[in-house]
Protein backbone atom coordinates (compact mmCIF):
# COMPACT_ATOMS: atom_id res chain seq x y z
CA UNK A 1 0.00 0.00 0.00
CA UNK A 2 2.96 2.36 0.51
CA UNK A 3 3.34 2.91 -3.19
CA UNK A 4 -0.33 3.65 -3.65
CA UNK A 5 -0.31 6.04 -0.75
CA UNK A 6 2.83 7.67 -2.09
CA UNK A 7 0.95 8.28 -5.31
CA UNK A 8 -1.99 9.61 -3.36
CA UNK A 9 0.26 11.95 -1.40
CA UNK A 10 1.85 13.11 -4.63
CA UNK A 11 -1.59 13.65 -6.13
CA UNK A 12 -2.75 15.64 -3.13
CA UNK A 13 0.35 17.80 -3.24
CA UNK A 14 -0.02 18.38 -6.96
CA UNK A 15 -3.66 19.30 -6.59
CA UNK A 16 -3.03 21.54 -3.64
CA UNK A 17 -0.17 23.32 -5.32
CA UNK A 18 -2.12 23.73 -8.53
CA UNK A 19 -4.99 25.28 -6.65
CA UNK A 20 -2.94 27.69 -4.60
CA UNK A 21 -1.38 28.96 -7.79
CA UNK A 22 -4.76 30.07 -9.14
CA UNK A 23 -5.71 33.69 -9.19
CA UNK A 24 -8.86 33.10 -7.20
CA UNK A 25 -8.39 33.44 -3.46
CA UNK A 26 -11.19 30.95 -2.92
CA UNK A 27 -9.29 28.27 -4.74
CA UNK A 28 -6.37 29.25 -2.57
CA UNK A 29 -8.28 28.09 0.47
CA UNK A 30 -9.22 24.75 -1.05
CA UNK A 31 -5.64 24.30 -2.12
CA UNK A 32 -4.32 25.00 1.36
CA UNK A 33 -6.72 22.45 2.84
CA UNK A 34 -5.55 19.85 0.37
CA UNK A 35 -1.94 20.64 1.22
CA UNK A 36 -2.75 20.08 4.87
CA UNK A 37 -4.18 16.66 4.13
CA UNK A 38 -1.21 15.89 1.95
CA UNK A 39 1.30 16.71 4.65
CA UNK A 40 -0.53 14.63 7.25
CA UNK A 41 -0.81 11.66 4.97
CA UNK A 42 2.83 12.04 4.06
CA UNK A 43 3.98 11.78 7.65
CA UNK A 44 1.61 8.92 8.21
CA UNK A 45 2.98 6.96 5.31
CA UNK A 46 6.54 7.71 6.33
CA UNK A 47 5.87 6.30 9.77
CA UNK A 48 5.22 2.91 8.21
CA UNK A 49 1.88 1.24 7.69
CA UNK A 50 0.58 -1.42 10.03
CA UNK A 51 -2.87 -2.92 9.79
CA UNK A 52 -5.08 -3.39 12.83
CA UNK A 53 -2.47 -2.97 15.55
CA UNK A 54 -3.16 0.37 17.23
CA UNK A 55 -0.61 1.43 19.83
CA UNK A 56 -3.01 0.84 22.70
CA UNK A 57 -2.30 -1.77 25.34
CA UNK A 58 -4.80 -4.39 26.21
CA UNK A 59 -5.90 -4.29 29.86
CA UNK A 60 -3.82 -7.36 30.63
CA UNK A 61 -0.60 -5.98 29.24
CA UNK A 62 1.90 -3.71 30.92
CA UNK A 63 3.72 -2.85 27.73
CA UNK A 64 3.09 -2.81 24.05
CA UNK A 65 4.11 -6.00 22.34
CA UNK A 66 4.15 -7.27 18.80
CA UNK A 67 3.94 -5.39 15.55
CA UNK A 68 2.04 -2.37 16.78
CA UNK A 69 1.89 0.78 14.74
CA UNK A 70 4.36 3.52 15.57
CA UNK A 71 2.54 5.89 17.94
CA UNK A 72 4.89 8.81 17.43
CA UNK A 73 3.85 9.80 13.91
CA UNK A 74 0.28 9.40 15.03
CA UNK A 75 0.78 11.82 17.87
CA UNK A 76 2.62 14.22 15.61
CA UNK A 77 -0.11 14.09 13.00
CA UNK A 78 -2.75 14.62 15.61
CA UNK A 79 -0.99 17.76 16.70
CA UNK A 80 -0.52 18.80 13.10
CA UNK A 81 -4.17 18.19 12.26
CA UNK A 82 -5.35 20.33 15.11
CA UNK A 83 -2.88 23.08 14.38
CA UNK A 84 -3.82 22.89 10.74
CA UNK A 85 -7.48 23.23 11.66
CA UNK A 86 -6.85 26.36 13.66
CA UNK A 87 -4.74 27.95 11.00
CA UNK A 88 -7.14 27.04 8.25
CA UNK A 89 -10.13 28.33 10.10
CA UNK A 90 -8.36 31.63 10.35
CA UNK A 91 -7.38 31.52 6.71
CA UNK A 92 -10.92 30.77 5.59
CA UNK A 93 -12.31 33.68 7.54
CA UNK A 94 -9.50 35.91 6.36
CA UNK A 95 -10.30 35.17 2.77
CA UNK A 96 -13.99 35.58 3.19
CA UNK A 97 -13.39 38.85 4.93
CA UNK A 98 -10.99 40.03 2.27
CA UNK A 99 -13.51 39.21 -0.38
CA UNK A 100 -16.16 41.19 1.44
CA UNK A 101 -13.89 44.12 2.18
CA UNK A 102 -12.46 44.41 -1.30
CA UNK A 103 -15.22 43.00 -3.41
CA UNK A 104 -12.87 40.90 -5.47
CA UNK A 105 -11.64 37.37 -5.43
CA UNK A 106 -8.99 37.98 -8.06
CA UNK A 107 -5.44 38.22 -6.77
CA UNK A 108 -4.70 40.54 -9.64
CA UNK A 109 -6.85 43.14 -7.91
CA UNK A 110 -5.14 42.59 -4.60
CA UNK A 111 -1.75 44.04 -5.31
CA UNK A 112 -2.22 47.73 -4.78
CA UNK A 113 -0.12 47.83 -1.62
CA UNK A 114 2.62 45.73 -3.11
CA UNK A 115 3.51 47.51 -6.30
CA UNK A 116 6.80 49.05 -7.19
CA UNK A 117 6.20 52.39 -8.76
Amino acid sequence: MEVELAVAVGGLYAAGIYLVMRRSIIKLIIGLSLLGHAANLLIFTMGGLVRGQPPVMHPWETRLVGGFADPIPEALILTAIVIGFGVQAFAIVLIKHTYQATGTEDLKDLQSSDLTS
Binding site: L28, L94, H97, T102, S112, S113
Partner: peptide
Protein backbone atom coordinates in the same frame (compact mmCIF):
# COMPACT_ATOMS: atom_id res chain seq x y z
CA UNK B 1 -8.78 44.50 8.78
CA UNK B 2 -7.84 47.53 6.72
CA UNK B 3 -7.59 46.80 3.03
CA UNK B 4 -3.79 46.94 2.61
CA UNK B 5 -3.49 44.85 5.73
CA UNK B 6 -5.75 42.20 4.30
CA UNK B 7 -3.86 42.14 1.02
CA UNK B 8 -0.60 41.75 2.86
CA UNK B 9 -1.94 39.16 5.23
CA UNK B 10 -3.22 36.90 2.48
CA UNK B 11 0.18 36.79 0.86
CA UNK B 12 1.92 36.36 4.16
CA UNK B 13 -0.40 33.56 5.20
CA UNK B 14 -0.28 31.66 1.94
Amino acid sequence: GEKPQLEGTIKYVA
